[in-house]
């Protein structure tokens, strides 16, 4: 559905994207992650045909979106800015795009969408009077006017309350699972990405650092983490001194009688043997499941450390 091939973008001699390649398949929810300035927005702009790549290609259904107006009818977008006209009403905002996309039954479609995002009662109010969350909902409604096959969302949940965030998440899942629409999600919300994305790509300093399913990335990138519970805090104190001196421990976090240890290379049984060998009374040792946030931070920090 979306093919990114060896994409590079230079701005005034500075490389912002450096040889990026990935694919997004039909019906999948693809999460595109990276810290600020990593090049996420530039990638999105190239895919949408707003920027031209220095080298490489960004194809949507085998074509360049920028050159093909018909193809743009199959794509919906919610960008960083909501792209709404504050001085127009909610209805007029949607109606403008409905006309540009050539929707035949505009009245019916707009009513359906406004009811869907719970803004029908406010349809005649100026968008300038709306809250950030309401604007975001309206922008989402606008992106769905023409029932697109592919949706590009740039931080769709930003500024939304938890209930609205859930609504957006459910909507994206429904669009993908029930209606087989492809979703490209540019997000900082790792929890959201973890919950809904089938595959993700992590970008840093213009380079693709990871590209796989969330599960595979967890396996590939996260170092094993164990949580050890001791009989009391005195035991934890003693253990803490020993653990921090071990060369196969990359991180250690103490919480009363518990210590969370990130291992580097060796297994948890080695750690346990070491502690028992030092006569430490270990009550419980269990492996900790890493979240996407942990994986993401590992990858980003790895790059910062130059590993």
């Amino acid at each position: 559905m979306i093919e990114i091939q060896n994409l590079t973008k230079d701005f005034n001699g500075k490389t912002v994207l450096n040889g990026i390649s990935f694919e997004v398949e039909e019906g999948e929810i693809f999460g595109y992650l990276g810290p600020n300035g990593a090049g996420k927005t530039t990638t999105l702009r190239i895919i949408l045909g707003l920027l031209k790549p220095t080298t490489g290609e960004a194809l949507v259904m085998g074509k360049n979106l920028g050159d093909d107006e018909e193809l743009r009818k199959r794509v919906g977008v919610v960008l960083e800015s909501d792209g709404l006209y504050d001085r127009l009403t909610a209805y007029d905002n949607l109606d403008y795009y409905a006309q540009l996309y050539g929707i035949s039954d505009r009245k019916g479609r707009l009513k359906q969408l406004l009811e869907f995002v719970e803004l029908y009662e406010r349809r005649n109010d100026k968008v300038g009077d709306f809250s950030t969350g309401m604007k975001r909902k309206l922008a989402l409604a606008r992106s769905l006017i023409h029932e697109p096959d592919i949706l590009f969302f740039d931080e769709p949940s930003i500024g939304l309350d938890p209930e609205a965030q859930r609504m957006v998440r459910d909507l994206i899942l429904r669009l993908s699972k029930e209606e087989k629409r492809t979703v490209f999600l540019n997000s900082h919300d790792l929890d959201e990405v973890q919950r809904i994305c089938t595959r993700i790509a992590i970008l840093q300093k213009g380079k693709l650092k990871a590209y796989d399913t969330v599960e595979n990335l967890r396996r590939k990138f996260s170092k094993p983490v164990v949580e050890i519970t001791f009989a009391d805090s005195k035991e934890a104190d003693k253990a803490s001194h020993i653990i921090t001196s071990l060369d196969f421990v990359s991180d250690c976090e103490r919480e009363n009688a518990r210590i969370i240890v990130a291992l580097n290379g060796k297994s948890s049984s080695t750690l346990l043997k070491t502690l028992i060998g030092e006569s430490i009374n270990v009550e419980e040792l269990k492996k900790v499941e890493k979240s996407l946030e942990d994986v993401y931070l590992d990858i980003v920090r790895q790059e910062e450390r130059g590993e």
Binding site: V75, S81, Y85
Partner: peptide, 9 residues
């Protein structure tokens, strides 16, 4: 706003 508008057909 122009960015969104430029994505229209």
């Amino acid at each position: 706003i122009i960015e969104t508008l430029l994505c229209a057909p």
